[in-house]
Design a protein around this nucleic acid. Structure first.
Length: 273
DNA sequence: CACGACTCCTGCTGGC
DNA sequence: TGCCAGCAGGAGTCGT
């Protein structure tokens, strides 16, 4: 479900309820998700204060003085802020209980994760899952030049390279297709055959699309909503994703759907060369 | 290292 | 209407 915009919308939604608040307890209703829940999570964070809620790629980082709770929503994870009395529903696997509210993680497919990183092992960014991530697409380091420089030895299709997260993070299946459409680049083009000028266009497209998606509250294609239950509206701004067989909104050509690395890609063969 | 296939899991949809 | 194959917004792991 969530790509960078949805995770950022989630972060902004939960942060006001978590910042500076004390954890009263946790509820765990499964062994774990993709990986087991941290050993003695309650003992680790009960009575501790959440100092900040940050994001790195699609990972949410709940920072404490003595470590960081790392939360990933996987494909189907969803966080909500609820009253303490909220009834438990199917797939409600984890609650972070505060004094007057709780943050609940619901994740039907259980591809998500809740992990703990001790402060003593360095910043959360040094965690094994975070240490080799690419740059933030909305940060100052990201640019067309960076994309160009880091793709000289990448023969894979540009769509796959974007999805890999090793050069730039947070660009998932929807926004990869949308960004390549806006930049006029065919998703099957080998990354090392794209020049600097086109990468400048792509970087600009990625920034612009992610920024717009965040402002619109993300994409609600099936079930996404922010932690207060509000849906996103970016799906109304899609040019190609999930529009196979429909006319291109720019040229009228029929939108194509192909498979790349077991994932669907959508594009306009006329607008994207 | 780069690359591609496979894998985890539940739920929904589309074709019969 | 029921059944079931196939696909869904992610990404770690393994073999080459």
């Amino acid at each position: 479900m969530p790509e960078l915009p949805e995770v950022e919308v989630t972060r902004r939604g939960v942060a006001p309820y978590l910042d500076g608040k004390v954890v009263v307890g946790v509820a765990l209703r499964a062994e774990g998700l993709r990986w087991p829940f941290p050993a003695d999570l309650a003992g680790k964070i009960t009575g501790r204060t959440i100092r900040a809620v940050k994001r790195r790629g699609k990972y949410l980082l709940l920072e404490f003085d003595h470590g960081t709770l790392i939360v990933h929503l996987g494909m189907s994870g969803h966080l909500q802020i609820l009253p303490l009395s909220a009834p438990v529903k199917k797939h409600d696997h984890f609650d972070l209980v505060l004094e007057d509210k709780l943050m609940r993680l619901n994740d039907p497919r259980r591809f998500g994760a809740v992990l703990w990183h001790e402060r003593g092992k360095g910043a959360a960014e040094s965690h094994v899952l975070l240490s080799s991530l690419g740059v933030e697409p909305l940060g100052t380091e990201f640019s067309g030049k960076l994309l160009y420089r880091n793709t000289r030895n990448r023969k894979s299709a540009i769509k796959q390279v974007l999805l890999s997260g090793r050069i730039v993070v947070g660009v998932g299946n929807i926004y990869a297709s949308e960004s390549l459409f806006q930049a006029g680049i065919n998703p099957e083009t080998p990354a090392n055959r794209i020049g600097l000028a086109r990468y400048e266009r792509l970087a600009q497209a990625i920034r612009s699309i992610l920024t717009t998606a965040i402002e619109q509250g993300g994409s609600t294609l099936r079930d996404f909503s922010d932690p207060d239950g509000r849906p996103g509206y970016f799906q109304n701004s899609r040019f190609v994703y999930d529009r196979a067989g429909q006319p291109c909104l720019i040229c009228g050509n029929t939108i194509s759907q192909i498979r790349q690395g077991q994932r669907s890609t959508f594009f306009c063969a006329n607008c994207q060369k």
